[in-house]
Amino acid sequence: MVAVDTYEQLRAHLATFLGFQGFDALWDRTLHLVRRTFPWEHHDVIPATPSAHQLDLMLRGRDAAEAQAIVLAIFTQFLALLFTFIGAGLGLRLLQQHWLALLAPRATDSRQEAQQ
């Protein structure tokens, strides 16, 4: 799932300087804020600790449009929260460096798909 892949790569990248604890704390706060707009169903089975599995469970069973809206809300909220703390200038700069890296595997996949 693209959202889960993006989450994992974003976490690995940002944890370089924020630490995994720092990233997870921000992510947890993000989900708390997004949840006001998109309450999770089956929240009793979703683990409290941020993880790829947690995100996967949150999106499971939703239709494509709803899942897309939630993913968009989560990542937008996460970036907004990150920028609140370290500013858009520094935040974008830190993200920019790995933005291409985040997109690169999918670009490769697309080419491979095209070749097939």
Partner: peptide
């Protein structure tokens, strides 16, 4: 200097 972050200056967390 924001322009130096990520290129000339790299922050690496080792807490975990």
């Amino acid at each position: 200097d924001l322009a130096k972050v990520g290129t000339s200056v790299r922050f690496i967390d080792l807490s975990g």
